[in-house]
Nucleic acid binder design. Structure first.
Lengths: 149, 149
DNA sequence: ATTTTCACTTGCAAAATGCAAGTGAAAAGC
DNA sequence: GCTTTTCACTTGCATTTTGCAAGTGAAAAT
């Protein structure tokens, strides 16, 4: 299909989001960073959903290009690069959380059952729990452990 | 990659959502129903992002299978079928809204600027505006007009 | 009775994905 | 310091998904 000069199908806000992170992998990377404190290519690769190496590389590139992730050299290990959420990426946390709420409701086998305390906090006030989590993630903390019941 | 017996990569709530609506088209169909009151194949086809006919058909099938849409015979026109959001589909409205909020913030050319009243309502309290919109959509109303400024 | 509308399907080309096997540079081990 | 291992990718190729254009069959409109 025809695209606007900036290579988007449209500037509809729903479409803008889809073009940035609307594929099968982007939000899994986000999840790994937020919930598991992962930051490197190798760590993402070990996710249970099984990235293939080239796809992971291309998704990371895309997320860096769209300004959701920032690539940094690892402080001590020169082979590694690490990936961090930018402000734009951190602001996806409320979207991620709203999605978790939906899945928790409709997937009877959801692993969300293991973090019901967090699910209830989201239901009660997504905005403020997201804000809190954004601060933690900024500091490089993984959040899943503290909500495991 | 290997999948669980129910054909999901995992029961991580993020992944569950991605498998249900994590592609470039599903949420555009949702948008067309919610904002524009569309309900038929032909109406979806006319969206500015340009579905191809076979992809639209396969997405609609998938959304019906996953229980997000319900297919109904058109009351008067026997050629048409119409598509309606189920409860499960209506519950995606808060996700859609959270996404709109994000795009409104980061796309400088966002068409969300045309519905800033709604954007502010979402920012202020996504849960209650979503609830209200869910009721309207259930009745088959398109919501965009009333928020155009 | 014929034409138009509608919701798709089919066939094929092009793009994206997935797998297995590299590659090159830095770190670790000896 | 020489070799091996680890790490972050890339490359080549098969498979799957997407996209375009051209049908098809049934119901509605003329």
């Amino acid at each position: 299909m025809k695209k606007t000069k900036d290579n988007l199908r449209s500037h509809c806000p729903v479409n803008y989001g889809l073009e940035a992170f609307g594929d099968r992998w982007a939000l899994l990377i986000l999840r790994d960073i937020v919930f598991r404190g992962k930051h490197s290519y190798g760590e993402f690769l070990r996710s249970e959903e099984g990235f293939s190496t080239n796809i992971l590389a291309s998704r990371l590139d895309h997320l860096v290009e769209t300004g959701i992730l920032r690539r940094e050299e690892h402080e001590t290990d020169g082979r590694k690069e690490s990936y961090w959420l930018t402000e734009k990426g951190l602001d996806l946390i409320p979207v991620l959380f709203e999605m978790i709420l939906w899945s928790a409701k409709y997937d009877s086998q959801s692993e969300a059952k293991r973090i019901m305390r967090l699910v209830e906090l989201i239901r009660d006030d997504n905005r403020s729990i997201s804000q809190k989590v954004m601060e933690q993630v900024k500091r490089g903390e993984a959040i899943v452990a503290e909500y495991l019941s």
